[in-house]
Amino acid sequence: MASQGTKRSYEQMETDGERQNATEIRASVGKMIDGIGRFYIQMCTELKLSDYEGRLIQNSLTIERMVLSAFDERRNKYLEEHPSAGKDPKKTGGPIYKRVDRKWMRELVLYDKEEIRRIWRQANNGDDATAGLTHMMIWHSNLNDTTYQRTRALVRTGMDPRMCSLMQGSTLPRRSGAAGAAVKGVGTMVMELIRMIKRGINDRNFWRGENGRKTRSAYERMCNILKGKFQTAAQRAMMDQVRESRNPGNAEIEDLIFLARSALILRGSVAHKSCLPACVYGPAVASGYDFEKEGYSLVGIDPFKLLQNSQVYSLIRPNENPAHKSQLVWMACNSAAFEDLRVLSFIRGTKVSPRGKLSTRGVQIASNENMDAMESSTLELRSRYWAIRTRSGGNTNQQRASAGQISVQPAFSVQRNLPFDKPTIMAAFTGNTEGRTSDMRAEIIRMMEGAKPEEMSFQGRGVFELSDERAANPIVPSFDMSNEGSYFFGDNAEEYDN
């Protein structure tokens, strides 16, 4: 993207840094990872977990959730003011799984939030270390993106479920800051804005008074975040219109849905970061690795190297396929839920299948599930090659597409044709070009129609051997075009429920 120079890199967003050079960025990201790792080690000690239990991804998720809940100030305040039966607002906890007599047992633990905050700050040299908290939120978000298709949420806001490739980060909490905003897809931002506008339509006082002023500035800020994701002048001009509207209503909703559809071809720039579970960072720190000293990046080879040398386990339900569970977590670790499966298959070195073909449910185990038949197995999170994460949407291309997802959002900077089903997408653009945004709409449609099938995206960008740390010898991959490109292809993934 041309304006790259004016933006802070995501590592800076990730670490609240002012302008830093590459070495400083690597050190501050490393410091953040160190903090998460030290916190995780301490929690495993508190909970008396064995090494194996500490490497269980379900335990990692519970521990991450506990610290996120302990620092969720708004919710904590709300819980104190609106006490609900049987919930102690000062405590947080969740299921911890232990191996007892050759069987997995679930144990519900409860801790004072104050105590968890103390352990977290102690692991982070006394700081609140917001960057580390956001990092864990993005890992949870990436896992949700890989596990669930947001059909219901899309339909509720009037969008087409086939636009799911635009929904990265749709389950990120509001408090995820600049680093969170960077990884949100165009569809996620559109959905947040539509929800806001709908509230304004239904509630006369939404934009009024002292609160209304705050609401208005939040609305304009979200519009600017979305505008910054678009790469064409016409899309940005249309966002200006939406932002400046005196009284946002149905016309703005129409414009936003139009823009979301246009992003299936004229893709937005959305950041991709490899955020790993805390149970990967903990053992690495415990083994003596100093992330701050060595430096770390979320968008280069580092996460690949770390996963190459990590042992992570997962509980497996009786009829689940461990290899499929591994694929789910591998995609989440690489922030690749909406990437082209052919690119992923090449990088991973084994075939990556669409969601609907995987015999696996989510990673988390519900409290009512029976533990008797639970097994555990090693997650295979290694890769054959590594590639640089991208934040450009890439230019655009036609490809055989599917009944489910009709476009992709690249996660890796790797040369390819970008699949999208042009006739299906263009069919949504018939007729409606009147109104105050008509010239911009016409211009956007013209650009979409001009998108050429034979153009290559990320020209000359390749993948790298894991021994090639400096990215000196790019390998331009070859793809098996007979395979499906979309992950949520004609899909039956479970729906995400809060």
Rank of each mutant, 00 (worst) to 15 (best):
Q4K: 04
G5T: 12
T6A: 12
T6R: 00
Y10W: 00
Y10G: 01
E11T: 03
E11P: 01
E11V: 13
E18R: 00
R19I: 00
Q20D: 00
A22R: 15
T23E: 00
E24A: 09
I25M: 14
R26Q: 06
R26K: 15
A27E: 04
V29K: 00
V29E: 02
K31L: 05
K31Q: 08
I33F: 08
D34H: 10
G35T: 09
G37I: 10
G37S: 14
G37M: 07
Q42S: 04
Q42T: 04
Q42K: 13
E46C: 12
L47E: 05
K48A: 14
K48C: 07
S50W: 00
G54C: 05
G54I: 02
L56Q: 04
I57K: 05
N59I: 01
E64W: 05
E64H: 07
E64K: 07
R65Q: 07
V67A: 14
L68A: 10
S69T: 11
F71W: 15
F71C: 05
R74K: 15
N76I: 15
N76Y: 04
K77F: 00
Y78H: 15
L79D: 10
E81C: 13
H82A: 05
H82S: 12
S84A: 15
S84L: 14
A85H: 14
P89H: 05
G93T: 07
G93Q: 12
G94V: 08
G94R: 07
P95C: 11
P95L: 03
P95F: 01
P95V: 09
Y97K: 14
Y97M: 05
K98Y: 01
V100D: 02
M105F: 14
M105N: 11
M105G: 13
L108T: 13
L108G: 12
V109N: 01
L110H: 06
Y111M: 15
D112T: 05
K113H: 11
E114N: 13
E114A: 09
E114F: 15
R117T: 09
R121L: 14
A123F: 04
A123D: 06
A123L: 09
N125P: 03
D128R: 06
D128E: 10
A129H: 08
T130E: 01
T130F: 03
A131Q: 09
G132T: 05
G132Y: 07
L133F: 03
T134W: 05
M136L: 15
W139E: 06
W139L: 13
H140E: 13
H140M: 06
S141P: 11
N142H: 11
N144A: 13
R150L: 12
T151I: 07
R152G: 06
L154S: 01
V155Q: 08
V155L: 05
T157L: 09
T157V: 15
P161Q: 12
R162N: 02
S165M: 13
Q168D: 06
G169M: 08
S170D: 09
T171V: 09
L172Q: 14
P173G: 03
R175W: 08
S176P: 06
A178W: 02
G180F: 11
G187V: 11
T188Y: 06
M191A: 01
M191F: 03
I194D: 12
R195P: 08
K198N: 12
R199L: 05
R199H: 11
G200I: 08
N205I: 11
F206W: 06
G212H: 11
T215G: 15
R216Y: 07
S217K: 03
A218G: 05
A218P: 09
R221L: 05
I225L: 15
I225D: 05
L226M: 11
K227N: 12
K227D: 07
G228S: 10
Q231Y: 01
T232V: 07
A233R: 01
A233M: 11
A234L: 03
R236T: 09
R236V: 10
R236P: 09
A237V: 00
A237C: 13
A237N: 04
M239Y: 05
D240Q: 15
D240L: 05
R243W: 02
E244I: 08
R246A: 07
I253N: 10
D255Q: 08
L256Q: 12
A260C: 14
A260I: 06
A260T: 13
R261I: 07
A263F: 01
L264D: 02
I265C: 13
R267K: 15
R267L: 04
S269V: 09
V270M: 07
A271F: 10
K273A: 03
S274A: 05
S274W: 09
C275Y: 06
C275K: 07
V280R: 05
V280P: 07
V280I: 15
Y281R: 08
Y281M: 07
G282V: 07
V285E: 10
Y289N: 10
D290W: 07
F291G: 13
F291T: 06
E292F: 12
K293S: 14
S297K: 09
S297C: 11
V299R: 06
V299I: 11
I301E: 07
I301W: 10
P303D: 10
K305T: 08
K305G: 08
L307M: 14
N309V: 08
N309L: 12
V312M: 15
V312A: 11
Y313T: 02
Y313G: 11
S314E: 07
S314A: 14
S314N: 11
P318G: 12
N319F: 04
N319V: 14
E320C: 07
E320P: 03
N321A: 10
P322C: 13
P322N: 11
A323I: 14
A323C: 11
A323Y: 07
A323D: 00
A323S: 13
K325R: 09
Q327W: 03
L328K: 04
W330P: 06
W330K: 05
N334M: 11
A336K: 00
A336F: 00
A336G: 15
F338K: 01
F338M: 12
E339P: 04
E339G: 08
E339M: 07
R342P: 04
L344E: 05
S345K: 03
R348A: 07
G349E: 12
L358E: 06
L358D: 06
T360E: 01
T360I: 07
G362R: 07
I365Q: 05
S367N: 14
N368W: 00
N368E: 14
N368G: 14
E369R: 03
N370P: 14
N370E: 13
M371T: 06
M371Y: 02
A373V: 12
A373Q: 03
E375G: 09
S377Q: 00
S377N: 13
L381E: 06
S383E: 01
S383N: 13
R384P: 09
Y385W: 04
Y385K: 00
W386V: 08
I388P: 04
R389D: 07
R389A: 13
R389C: 01
N395E: 02
N395I: 01
T396F: 11
T396E: 00
Q398F: 09
V408E: 11
Q409V: 14
A411R: 08
A411K: 00
F412P: 00
F412S: 02
F412K: 09
Q415A: 15
R416G: 06
R416E: 09
L418R: 00
L418H: 03
F420V: 14
F420P: 00
D421Y: 09
D421T: 11
P423W: 00
T424M: 08
A428I: 06
T430C: 06
T430G: 15
G431E: 02
N432L: 14
T433H: 04
G435E: 10
R436M: 03
T437C: 14
T437P: 04
T437G: 00
S438I: 00
M440S: 09
A442Y: 02
A442M: 12
E443T: 03
I445R: 07
M448G: 03
G450N: 13
K452M: 05
P453D: 13
E454R: 00
M456Y: 11
S457I: 01
S457H: 04
Q459W: 09
R461M: 07
V463H: 06
E465F: 00
S467D: 11
D468F: 02
R470A: 05
R470N: 00
A471P: 01
A471C: 03
A472W: 11
A472I: 00
A472H: 13
A472S: 12
N473D: 04
N473L: 12
N473Y: 03
I475P: 13
N483P: 00
F488E: 01
D491S: 02
D491F: 02
D491Y: 12
E494H: 12
D497W: 05
